[in-house]
Amino acid sequence: MVNAFTSSIGHFNYWASVLLMTSGIYIVLSRGNLIKKIIGLNLFQVSVFMLFISMGKVTGGTAPILTGRHEIFSNPLPHVLILTAIVVGVATTAIGLALVVRIKYAYGTIEEDEILALDLAREQMDARAQ
């Protein structure tokens, strides 16, 4: 019992990021608004970053900067990776939003169900034309 308790304390950081991750995915899947989907995607990614950073934490360690005063550092490698990943994430967001803007111009809406309805109408028109 005690063991389970301590282990759950030891993993709370993971659990928190898992919660955030799943809500991110939930937004992507359940929401019809395309911008909302991208926000969800972003949430998902940021929570993954948290997972990574918390993996790198060492109890008693400090930020990985050699100042001479500390000898225990948190693991800097995840930090490096996440720096890259943040940039990649923003790049994705930018492309995604640009696509949303184009979709708005082309369809006049950014709601998924309305777009699907428009496409369906178009397909039926094509089918009749043949």
Binding site: G96, L99, I103, D119
Partner: peptide, 12 residues
């Protein structure tokens, strides 16, 4: 224009 939505789904 359906290319746009296709690309968006692909992106997600």
């Amino acid at each position: 224009r359906r290319a746009l939505t296709a690309a968006f789904t692909y992106l997600l």
